[in-house]
Nucleic acid binder design. Structure first.
Lengths: 110, 110
DNA sequence: ACACAGTACCTCGCTATACGATGTCGGCGT
DNA sequence: ACGCCGACATCGTATAGCGAGGTACTGTGT
């Protein structure tokens, strides 16, 4: 369960926002959890860096795709949870469709 | 034959070098021709911009994947042809494999 | 004769994104 | 007591693709 194939950042580019939205489809999650969810879902093939995560989350908030709230962990480290908005669901669908389309085109060119 | 689906630059990122190498697998080609070859191969879905082409070609030359020579068009516009080196063939194979891998991982995450 | 579109080359500077480095704070294991 | 991990965050950097612009020759329409 190691990171062998290590995809180059450029091949992941543009997909991280969609990828994060997807992790929020089923449940609200906090930042660190999103990173680990993605790592697990890819069997350790890809784990976004934290800097990447937070800049993406800021983008998603600014676009209105997600909203955040602090968890009520009365003791211990605070956790900031992110929820999908209705627009966020649409954005996920659009992102997934864009990926499908890009995949088809790139398969013809590579 | 129009550009409707217009893939976002970010989804193409990192693949253009490989894509150009591919056009050179069968025959030497000159810059403008590479652009049009890609446009045709994707049914107009993607056509790299010239600025993109030339910066990619400079990268490929610097890496030793391609070499260039001027065509002997005695009259009319000069054409600069690009040839794959042996290392360039390997680089294409590696790029194609990286795409295959990335595709599998991303399909699990999007 | 002249304008214009297309072929064909090229460069400069912008922007967005992913990431490396770094920092903070709390809890837990040894 | 100390370090490690969870969990948040920011700052700066590198790079790729592109928009805008520039040169030159050829062919076509009027």
């Amino acid at each position: 369960m190691e990171n062998h194939g290590s995809l180059s950042p450029d091949l992941v580019r543009g997909n991280i926002d969609t990828m994060i939205l997807k992790t929020l489809l089923g449940a609200d999650r906090y930042g660190y959890q999103i990173v680990k969810t993605i790592a697990a879902a890819s069997s350790g093939q890809y784990e976004p860096k934290e800097a990447t995560l937070y800049s993406s989350l800021r983008r998603l908030e600014a676009s209105g795709w997600v909203t955040a709230y602090w968890g009520d962990e009365s003791q211990g480290g605070r956790r900031k949870y992110y929820t999908l908005t209705a627009a966020g669901r649409d954005a996920y669908a659009a992102g997934a469709a864009a990926w499908d389309h890009a995949k088809r085109v790139l398969d013809a060119l590579l």
